[in-house]
Simulated assay, not measured.
Amino acid sequence: MKPFCFADGQIISSEKATIHPMDLGLIRGYGIFDFFRTVNFKPLFLESYLDRFLASAERTFLPLDYSRAELKAIVHELIEKNHLKEGGIRMVLSGGVSPNHFSPAKGKLFIFAESLIFPAQEKYDKGIKLLSLEYVRPIAEIKTTNYAYPVWDSIRWKDAGAEDVLYHLNGHLSESSRSNFFIVKDGVISTPDTHVLMGITRKNVIELAGKVQIRPISMQEALNADEAFITSTTKVLLPVTQIDDHEIGTGKPGPVSLGLLEKFRELEKEICF
């Protein structure tokens, strides 16, 4: 974590940021967050992330006493004070201290600046493994702080040499624990349509690809795909070459996945340089 953060209505030393021990964020796991990158000191896709954060606050009934303009000003000040050329900004709104210890209350806003480490280049070159997990994330369309199940399960997939999990229910896929999921078959790109977070990287990859089918995808389709990949803020686009013990396509990153990754990198340059 970088030296300065926003808490208690002001920019302070990050080590002085505190939260009440009875906040719903701690005792119930109730809160929202969002995370985006800075590239060349510029917050990448900031407007889209603020759209999602503001909508999440409204949909989770958590009061947010800051306007879009105020949030933008805080973000830019933090980038400057932390000299955050290439890093991450994490916005967190806690569930608040509730009179009945259960209902949403007026929470606390934190905005942190962080260092960011991308996956090793080897993972982009060789692809990654996902482990299937029968699960649907609660209120998946909102970026909540509730990651208890995948955090608990992470010991299993780390021991198996997997990068992450792939959620499925009743034979259909949704997402990974921190990423969106895509398949490619006969040149056609598809991504699940329900029980997913509308990722900002997902949105931009869909726009870059041009034609993407947003529809139900079965586990069998994924296993039979020519290519598969995940997208997220911190990974951008990682090729998936194995699901459980099943090799995807040739077992190597495919041309569609790698081509989209290159297009995304070019988009970053256009925006931030």
Rank of each mutant, 00 (worst) to 15 (best):
S179C: 06
E268V: 00
A228I: 01
D65C: 09
K85D: 15
V39Y: 11
T60P: 06
I206Y: 14
L84W: 04
F33I: 00
G161H: 13
F61W: 15
P21W: 05
I214P: 03
E247V: 10
F273S: 12
L62K: 00
A55N: 15
S98K: 01
P21S: 11
T144P: 08
F6I: 03
S14P: 07
E134C: 09
A7P: 07
D153W: 04
K211L: 11
K269I: 04
N40K: 06
N100V: 00
W157Q: 08
L267W: 07
S14A: 10
K108C: 05
L26C: 15
L50M: 11
I117M: 05
R178Y: 14
L237N: 05
E134V: 04
I243T: 09
V97W: 12
I111T: 06
V236T: 13
M22W: 15
I74K: 02
I243A: 12
A57G: 10
F33W: 06
E247W: 08
D8K: 01
V97A: 14
K106P: 01
F229D: 05
R52F: 04
E86C: 14
H172K: 12
N204H: 15
A7M: 08
R156G: 12
D23K: 02
S232V: 00
T234R: 11
R90V: 08
G25P: 07
R68K: 14
T233W: 07
A120P: 14
K126T: 15
P138S: 05
R37Y: 05
N40F: 02
K126Y: 14
L116Y: 09
P239M: 04
K235H: 13
K16I: 09
E141T: 06
L173V: 09
R37Q: 07
V184N: 11
I214W: 06
R28K: 04
V184G: 12
F53L: 02
L169N: 12
F273W: 06
H101T: 08
E268F: 02
G187N: 01
T234E: 13
S179F: 03
R37I: 00
V39K: 05
G259K: 00
K269M: 07
L93Q: 06
E262W: 08
H101V: 02
R28V: 00
S179V: 00
H83Q: 15
V136N: 14
R137N: 09
F36H: 13
I217T: 02
L109I: 06
K42W: 04
L169I: 03
D193H: 08
L78Q: 07
L166N: 13
V188S: 06
L169P: 04
C272Q: 03
L237Q: 03
P216H: 01
P43V: 10
R137Q: 09
H76W: 11
T250D: 14
S174K: 03
A140G: 08
P63Y: 10
D8C: 01
A113R: 02
L238V: 10
D23T: 04
R156K: 15
G210E: 10
G210Y: 09
L44C: 10
A7L: 09
D244I: 01
L26G: 15
S218K: 05
G107C: 05
L261D: 04
I271K: 01
I27S: 14
